[in-house]
Amino acid sequence: MAHQTRSARKAGLFDLRWIIAVLFGIYGVVLIVLGVGFRTDEDLAKAGGININLWSGVGMAALAAVFGLWAAWRPMVVPERVEEMPPADDAAGAGER
């Protein structure tokens, strides 16, 4: 695990948890705004009376908050050097060699 390496630094934006937090933060806010400010009776009827934009938005914002807090609480660190480079993932990135 990353915590034990001496010469290490934070991964910052490359931490997947931040990427998830940012994406779902944006989605959550947009959906909440839509759900509160722009809901129409037609939309409500479509979803059988549930304000699905609002509730999905709340759920996504909560997900974003969990990942953001987790990433802030335990930042990921990248080891400076890795002894043995694991093999390239052949299923991906072959065109990039």
């Binding site: 959906l31 839509l34 129409t40 479509k46 699905i52 934009n53």
Partner: peptide
């Protein structure tokens, strides 16, 4: 098409 309003539709 039948259930999701604009917004969730985009997701």
């Amino acid at each position: 098409r039948d259930l999701l309003p604009n917004g969730m539709l985009g997701i």
